[in-house]
Amino acid sequence: MGALLDQKYEKLFALLDTNGDGVIGEDDFELMAGRVLNAAAEEKTAKGEKYADEMRNYWRALRDTADANEDGRISKDEFRQALRHVSDTFDTLVGPLYQAGFHLADRDDDGLVGREDFVAVLAAIGVPAPEAGASFDRLTEQSGQLTKDQLMTAATRYYCHEDPADSASHLLFGAL
């Protein structure tokens, strides 16, 4: 794994360690899902349930892949090793979570997410709002609207690509 992927995985680990205890556990995913659903005002909706389900699926897939010592917690080293495999199966393991997150932020179901909704969701995940806004601007090339294809392309590249010229997707979750 190259230095750029390693930086991105470090950033992702820090975001997923929602409670800041140095490991990732099911409680981190529950806490993050609650924060995102609250920020999107979708706690008791079909969209909210879909997002919560995909967060649970992502946790289970990550745990099954990464938890080498089967203690129910994922260390930074376990996470780094597992993301190589998870990245290879992005479409089935990780992609559905990003799709559900997109639909959650697409409040009017028009297939587009505006800057305010994008920033609200990323801020709930733990990305500072100014960095989330800058990410939105880069991803949309300041068009003011994000499509699901733009998000999925950026997310796939975040997990799998190391091309330093592709700064928009590398900064999906803020500065590295």
Rank of each mutant, 00 (worst) to 15 (best):
D64I: 06
A100W: 00
V113P: 02
M55K: 08
E116N: 08
D117M: 01
G72I: 10
D110I: 07
E141H: 08
G95L: 01
F102A: 02
D67T: 11
A123W: 05
D110S: 12
G95C: 08
I125Q: 04
L122V: 02
E78R: 05
D110T: 08
G126S: 13
K76M: 07
S135N: 12
E131D: 15
P128S: 09
G144Q: 05
A129D: 02
S143Y: 08
A124L: 03
D53K: 15
K76V: 07
R115M: 13
A124T: 02
R63Q: 15
T89C: 13
D109E: 13
R60D: 10
G126P: 09
V127K: 00
F79R: 06
G114I: 01
E116S: 13
F102G: 02
V127Y: 00
A68Q: 14
L112F: 08
D137C: 05
P96F: 03
A134Q: 13
Y98G: 03
D91Y: 09
R107G: 10
V121C: 05
F90H: 03
G101L: 11
A120V: 03
R60G: 07
N69H: 01
E54V: 01
E54L: 07
Y98R: 05
T140Y: 00
S135H: 10
A132L: 01
S87R: 03
A124V: 06
S135K: 06
S135A: 15
R84G: 15
A68D: 06
K76T: 15
A61H: 09
L104C: 06
I125N: 04
L93W: 12
V94E: 02
G95H: 01
T140M: 02
D67R: 11
E116M: 02
E78H: 15
T92L: 10
A123R: 03
H85G: 14
S87F: 04
M55F: 06
Y98T: 12
G111F: 04
Y58D: 00
L62P: 11
R115H: 08
Q142R: 14
R63W: 05
D106R: 01
L93Y: 07
G111R: 03
V86R: 11
V113W: 00
D53S: 09
Q99H: 06
A68H: 14
R84P: 14
L62C: 07
A124R: 00
N57E: 06
Q99W: 03
F102P: 06
L62F: 10
L139I: 15
W59E: 11
A100F: 01
K76N: 09
F79T: 09
A82F: 12
A134G: 12
E70A: 14
A124Y: 00
V121Q: 00
D88K: 12
A120Q: 06
M55T: 10
G133R: 07
V113Q: 02
E116Q: 12
T65V: 06
E116A: 14
D64N: 15
D77Y: 03
D110W: 05
